[in-house]
């Protein structure tokens, strides 16, 4: 795909950023390329280092009072599965740590794609590429947009997203996950 510009849907609950402006993605800069290869570890090396660090970190954890992700939200997401009756108190704690690792692994893989195309902004297409390249992430294929070059609906701020989106709608189909991830119903009928 040739498109480098992403639709910037307004984000509900926007957090303040010191850097106010959002930069457009830049085309590859050939002057940068020659200096990149010698300094970069391979993706495999980065991931090996990452997992070694996770094991060390897990051994040395002393503070279990604060989690990087709210346990109450994790419980709600777990409970979206109607078949789940009860969960032990430890289950959301383990998930909080697991999701932190998941976000980090996905970010490492996506950023490797950003760098490979000489970009400076980690974009949806980098995530789509990382997911398609990783076997354990196959379960995410169905919630990924078919064409990552197009803007997608913002769940957090549907109305704003709709106002800012181009006329064309691009809503990813959810053939398997409908019970657990309901997209809001927009004015136009979403493809099923």
């Amino acid at each position: 795909m040739d498109q480098n510009k992403q639709g910037e849907a307004a984000e509900g609950g926007n957090i303040g950023h010191p850097a106010h402006g959002k930069n457009q993605e830049e085309q590859s800069n050939p002057m940068i390329a020659p200096t990149n290869p010698p300094k970069k570890k391979s993706l495999e090396e980065q991931l090996n280092d990452f997992w070694a660090a996770q094991r060390e970190e897990a051994k040395m954890t002393t503070n279990f009072k604060t989690h990087s992700l709210p346990l109450s939200r994790i419980k709600k997401i777990i409970k979206t599965d109607k078949d789940v009756k009860m969960i032990s108190a430890e289950t959301p704690v383990v998930f909080a740590k697991a999701c932190e690792m998941f976000i980090k692994e996905l970010t490492i893989r996506a950023w490797a794609n950003t760098e490979a195309r000489k970009g400076k902004i980690l974009s949806q297409r980098d995530l789509v590429s990382a997911i398609s390249q990783t076997a354990s992430f196959d379960f995410l294929d169905d919630i990924m947009p078919k064409d990552a070059g197009l803007p997608r609906t913002s769940i957090a701020s549907t109305e704003n997203a709709y106002l800012n989106m181009p006329p064309q709608q691009n809503v990813a189909g959810l053939p398997y996950d409908a019970p657990t991830m309901a997209f809001p119903n927009l004015n136009h009928h979403a493809p099923n």
Binding site: Q6, E8, A9, E11, T107, A110, L127, M144, R152
Partner: peptide
């Protein structure tokens, strides 16, 4: 990017 945040 914002779409990456939502996708994650």
């Amino acid at each position: 990017s914002d779409d990456a945040k939502e996708t994650i």
